[in-house]
Design a protein around this nucleic acid. Structure first.
Lengths: 324, 324
DNA sequence: CATCTTCGTGCAAACGTTTGCAGTACGGGT
DNA sequence: ACCCGTACTGCAAACGTTTGCACGAAGATG
């Protein structure tokens, strides 16, 4: 039925091993034979069978990519970049979605472990301990999570948070709330840590409100607390939270940015077309996706764990923040 | 290294074939042996090797899912639904992104063909002829595209478009523009066809403007033409186009919906939080994803092509449309 | 000219499953 | 007592590759 290496061998008058080598180690075969084999392969429409190859080499050519929620606009550009980077290296990517649940995440990792050469864990919700444990089964690269001994790509959200707080301080805000994200989110922890340190330096009092689900609903739900806390500015865990918050406080009769300044994080597409357009921390999502794939493939092929790389973030000022 | 069927066989004192059968055809093995084997497997942490299985059965257990652009908010909920449906049936899903380019799409299908048991083509940009041709290599299910002989899931956007036109007609609009999408988009064709028929019935004149890229930029770019055409209402190819259009016409000094009513399509997340909140046609995206996977697995396992199913759409009225 | 490399190729044994076939044991029907 | 069917299990040949090893033919070296 399907055309195999054997058909190609027959058609070009060489042994199957030679055909195999023309595809997997071209330099080992004579240039003339190679072109002959390639011609025959092309003619017959031969495509190597990855399953068979996987069986021999113990490499599947597949990578896993686990995210909390594909529908969260933070992830698609990252997935897209990772995907195309992997494809360029002739790897396929399984994308899986954990619905923000640590249990599902663990289950996914376990079930993927044996069928991929490595996996990307993006903003995982698992405990460090469990991540380290699972990391013994499959090569991992973490995105936005730091676990000692495991390679990772971090977006330096701390720098962005500092810029945000300075920006707000510069606008005269002295009482600022930070809406934290999921408890297990490294990004959230970093953000809060940096914001607190920076607030101290600028004479700003920081109110911590959270944890909040990383969604519009999460933002909306904390509107009351924000209002009653008397702050004049908010740094939200992400753009969706910011949007949810803004909508709700406007329903309560406030205006953004006149009555309340709001800063988001992620610089998702939505931040640009929401009204007021969101001041937000830009995250280098595509670069992170590409970089993570590079690290992962390095780990997979060399067997040793590459280090951790950190990418810059920066504040993008738009219309949701104003002088107090 | 990894624990294989052979280890389990040894540990439980049976032949490998019996172990194999315990996992792939449990009814063929004695209940006692089965529990013994399962115990051993569990103890050793055995997981069947899918590549090896694929080699024997000629089934990979993988499905392909090809979309035009993961970052287009229309797709993630569909991907998510398809993904989880497939996972529940013990299939894995490769997601790939064509960047809206037919050539890339063709290449992707070809390269996936031999490594998946079937593929979902969502809103493909390829020609019918090519789709039919590629369909001979792999079982396909199409979403939002009708190609005779191939199974598909269609969202009845025509019905939604009719409702939209009736809605606008009811608000007193007599000159309406329709911003068409990519030339190869079945959705766009359906939408225009239905809108035209319906416009005729309600004494509305329909101006066709396009094709437009299915993005905000696409919408923004057609703002001039919309304004100069003198229409009082617009039906846009999708929500992103609608948003882009609205932003641009507001830059030109108009107000939506006071000066121009705009209807989107897709009912993406953004439609809800954009200001003005978008009147739009709701698409049953998750249901389509699940349904498409079901059809695909049916095609894969029975070998015969299931039919085409059509899902309802409906107009959701929000704040971007008003009486003329 | 003998010896040593290098290069290109073939041979055959893996890789971990599945599955058609054959064999055994047992219980029931005649 | 015999035969047959059923239920289970083992045997071994696939599935399509890769890869260590061996071998022969040149070419290089002394």
């Amino acid at each position: 039925m399907a055309v195999t290496i054997r058909d190609v061998a027959r058609a070009s008058g060489v042994h199957v091993s030679t055909v195999s080598r023309t595809f997997s180690a071209a330099h080992l075969v004579n240039a003339q034979t190679r072109t002959r084999v390639l011609a025959a392969a092309d003619e017959l429409g031969y495509r190597p069978n990855r399953a068979a190859r996987a069986l021999s080499t113990r490499r599947t050519g597949n990578l896993g990519l686990i995210v909390a929620d594909i529908a969260n606009p933070f992830f698609p550009p990252l997935i897209k970049a990772a995907q195309s980077q992997a494809r360029a290296r002739d790897y396929h990517v399984f994308v899986a979605d954990t619905d923000e649940q640590a249990r599902v995440e663990e289950e996914l990792v376990r079930s993927m472990a044996k069928q991929v050469d490595g996996a990307l864990l993006v903003a995982p919700r698992l405990s460090n301990r469990l991540i380290a444990e699972l990391g013994r089964d499959v090569p991992f690269v973490l995105v936005n999570r730091r676990v000692s001994g495991l390679p990772g790509v971090l977006m330096d959200v701390a720098a962005g948070a500092r810029q945000a707080v300075e920006h707000l301080a510069g606008l005269g805000h002295r009482e600022v709330a930070v809406l934290t994200g999921p408890r297990a989110s490294w990004t959230s922890q970093e953000m809060v840590r940096a914001a607190e340190a920076c607030a101290g330096e600028h004479g700003v009092r920081l109110h911590r409100i959270g944890p909040n689900p990383p969604t519009e609903e999460g933002g909306a739900a904390s509107a009351d607390e924000v209002v009653s806390s008397g702050v004049s500015a908010v740094l939200a865990y992400n753009d969706m939270v910011a949007v949810g918050l803004i909508q709700q406080v406007e329903r309560l009769g406030l205006t953004v940015p006149a009555d309340l300044s709001v800063v988001g994080v992620d610089n998702t597409h939505a931040a640009r077309y929401f009204r007021p357009a969101l001041t937000t921390v830009d995250m280098p999502v595509a670069a992170a996706g590409r970089g993570a794939i590079d690290l992962l493939l390095q780990a997979v092929t060399t067997g040793e764990s590459p280090g951790t790389v950190s990418l810059d973030t920066r504040l993008v000022v738009r219309d949701s923040t104003a002088r107090r």
